[in-house]
Nucleic acid binder design. Structure first.
Lengths: 195, 195
DNA sequence: GTCTATACTGAGATAGAC
DNA sequence: GTCTATCTCAGTATAGAC
């Protein structure tokens, strides 16, 4: 994707929506950031809602595709889980404006758009739920409630896009590794292992 | 707090802001839910922003007070952590409209209000960070990055207010217990312990 | 494809009677 | 303490020239 005006609107909209929220952002603010007049936006997108939907749809499609792709050459549930978490976190740090918006602005979608995006989110969560279920069945994971654990995991990881900044203390890889260890072994689990 | 009109406005505002977001909610919608005319709201609150701030301030004050109170008669870091997590989750399920708003609408606060609430949030996070640090120092917890783990923990637990509903499959206590176990031992930790 | 100008609507908030 | 009526402004979106 070269930096066409349309791509620039997309990117700046994600940034703006992230900062001020969808309803807290205006077309004029967006136009200012892009460096065009407000009316010009309507040449590229049908409406403000259309921009939001484009961001959400693109982000969820990418996420689904990336995670599914990683699953192809992973065998054990633990290997799958490690890869899935890593991909999730990587995408949530690299495209963190878009992923933040996709996560926080579900309620700003109109009915039809809402349905479509929710379906994609359900499918995405299902991937993680399936990995955990498989781990339980194979006896390598012990989970009281798989759905609960799935929610906990995803919320924990998604939250990274709330505070992450590229210049920070920790690299993306370090963060991902720590989150994987945390979810697999907890903060006391490894100590027991050593006794 | 008896159900005065002011208390009703407060409660309905939390519910409305949770559903539609602060910027997506209007004074007229709020007035409709309360059952008064739009103008009447201004007898009880100075502005829409004033309502948001009242919700945030009250919620953070309650949270801080509840957790600090529980810490008084807890000795070990693990006991403290268990209690703190339980209180956090309980409050995020019982007053889930208010806590959701307090968590999601930080960016909708005006500069002065923002500063005050952020200071309270920092103090709140610090309580959890201190517990984890203590656990590491005493050798009962192993954590690569305490700040990172604190964020992961709080985001995981706070997320409950996004999907919890009182009539659901799991009780508050069950959820809290599972989250505690998850954070302490992970999904593989306990298995290692048994070998 | 971008502009200027503007239509139209709904937002937060206030005035002043009761 | 609540109402009716209304002000004012900012929001999304469109029309039509260049």
């Amino acid at each position: 994707m070269t930096t066409t005006t349309k791509a620039l609107i997309f990117k700046e909209a994600a940034r703006l929506f992230r900062e001020k929220g969808y309803n807290g952002s205006t077309q004029r603010q967006l136009a200012d950031r892009v460096g065009v007049q407000g009316a010009s936006i309507y040449h590229h997108f049908p409406s403000k809602q259309g921009i939001l939907y484009a961001i959400m749809e693109y982000t969820m499609t990418s996420l689904l595709q990336k995670v599914r792709c990683e699953m192809l050459d992973a065998s054990s549930p633990e290997a799958k889980l490690r890869k899935a978490i890593k991909v999730h976190i990587e995408y949530h740090t690299v495209d963190r404006d878009e992923t933040y918006v996709a996560d926080a602005e579900l309620r700003s979608l109109e009915a039809e758009n809402f349905k479509k995006i929710v379906a994609m989110r359900v499918a995405y969560e299902q991937i993680f739920r399936d990995i955990l279920s498989e781990g339980v069945q194979e006896g390598v994971m012990r989970i009281g409630d798989v759905s609960l654990a799935t929610k906990a995991l995803l919320q924990m990881c998604t939250g990274i896009s709330y505070w992450f900044s590229p210049g920070g203390r920790r690299s993306i890889d370090e963060i991902a590794d720590q989150y994987v260890e945390l979810f697999l072994f907890g903060i006391c689990g490894k100590l027991n292992n050593e006794r």
